[in-house]
Design a binder for these strands. Structure first.
Lengths: 226, 226
DNA sequence: TCAAACCTAGAGTATATACTCTAATCACAA
DNA sequence: TTGTGATTAGAGTATATACTCTAGGTTTGA
């Protein structure tokens, strides 16, 4: 693999593990056993590495969020989108963590991320429309649809952060891809009231598969009371 | 005012304005025109200042989230809680920004924040129960109630972050207490489907007051499409 | 085969940051 | 007045961090 790609990969890995704030360019170089000079030959600065990672994240999400507009959407479609989105969220989980700082220090990223958000909100809306066409959920006035989409976006993009802050310091209940997907449970909760009656049971059953397991972990205790 | 209190106040102000990551202890001292030595006479380290601020934040929220359990809740109660919570969120808006890093570097804060979250989720649940008792919203099975409360929490605590990332670099659409309160619109959106029919119109009207104004600002454009 | 382009090492630097240390000053009670 | 404890100034330090510079090695293609 090319050094440039190795740098991107190693950075993503370290960022995800330790948080962008705790990973320096020297760490990245050391991790790859290359010199700092070498790293800076390939990237002008740390922001450039992050920007490059963002572009890949964007590409991935754009790929999964191509919504067909020539046919209505099914429940399977919806679950596919949810699974894909949370997979992406896991792979690039560092990103939404220090987001505000990243955007503050890179104008280009700020602008691109704004557009990215906008496209995602749009895609969520389209999915809802497709599901309404497919008779899975009720039709809604566009204003409600937009507000709903935004709520879905908020829940999806911040579920990881919630997990991180909700668990204790012991490693036993550290976030994992499995726990992350409990976010799907939360998103389905948002959709419940708008389901057409004939889909209600099916979705409730689906949703139950993502329910946080009760055997008294800290994060599940949070969901009930302490 | 005592120097110690001045330090807390100035820190909060600077953190809110520039983000905790961009504010050093030297900045704080300089801002107050005191020496670093003086600052460190009053606080062992930066984390201690942050922890102290957290305690005040916690106190404020606890104060507003005392839910009466001897009477049902009204719509006015609910709006009071929402307004109060968003006011608090605004006053301590730096806090949820670099949250994960803060918790990583202070075990005590991590533990306290976990309990804080837990109490807040509980309070949200109690509010819903109270509103159900008051005939404002439908009764719900506890499992749905918990999931709903968690969604409200996610929307509330991350609305500020969304605003920050959604606006452009020009100052015109910078977050403000006014924009922050559009978060109330989002929360009310979550509640809409569970309202008792006789409250529906009233809440829709209330909600409309918090609706993002349309005159083509960037953030409102985000809410529709781009 | 040879030069140009590409890649890499590694020492080094300017700046920032959290924090320390000592000596001085202040407030105030005896 | 004087002594004592609380407060403050300000120079200073160890470490970290992003990034630079030079010199040398490696590939590639003509």
């Amino acid at each position: 693999m090319k050094t440039r790609d190795k740098i991107i990969l190693a950075s993503l890995e370290l960022f995800n593990e330790r948080g962008e704030r705790n990973v320096t360019t020297n760490h990245i170089a050391a991790h790859l056993a290359i010199s700092p000079g070498n790293l800076y030959y390939h990237f002008r600065n740390k922001s450039d590495i992050i920007y490059e990672i963002f572009l890949e994240y964007e590409k991935l999400v754009n790929y999964y969020l191509q919504i067909p507009d020539d046919r209505p959407l099914t429940l399977e479609d919806m679950m596919f989108y949810l699974e894909s989105v949370f997979d992406g969220l896991w792979s690039y989980r560092f990103f939404h963590r220090d987001l505000e700082f990243l955007l503050d220090s890179d104008e280009r990223l700020r602008e691109d991320y704004r557009k990215f958000t906008s496209r995602c909100l749009d895609a969520i809306g389209q999915i809802f429309n497709g599901l309404a066409d497919g008779g899975v959920i009720e039709a809604q006035p566009p204003e409600l649809r937009s507000a709903m989409s935004l709520n879905v976006w908020l829940v999806v993009t911040n579920w990881m952060a919630f997990l991180k802050t909700a668990h204790g310091s012991d490693l036993s209940d550290q976030p994992s891809i499995h726990k992350l997907k409990q976010g799907i449970y939360q998103v389905l909760t948002l959709e419940l009231p708008y389901l057409m009656p004939e889909y209600r049971e099916t979705v409730l059953a689906l949703r139950d598969k993502y329910r946080p397991e009760l055997p008294e972990t800290r994060s599940s205790r949070l969901l009930t009371s302490e």
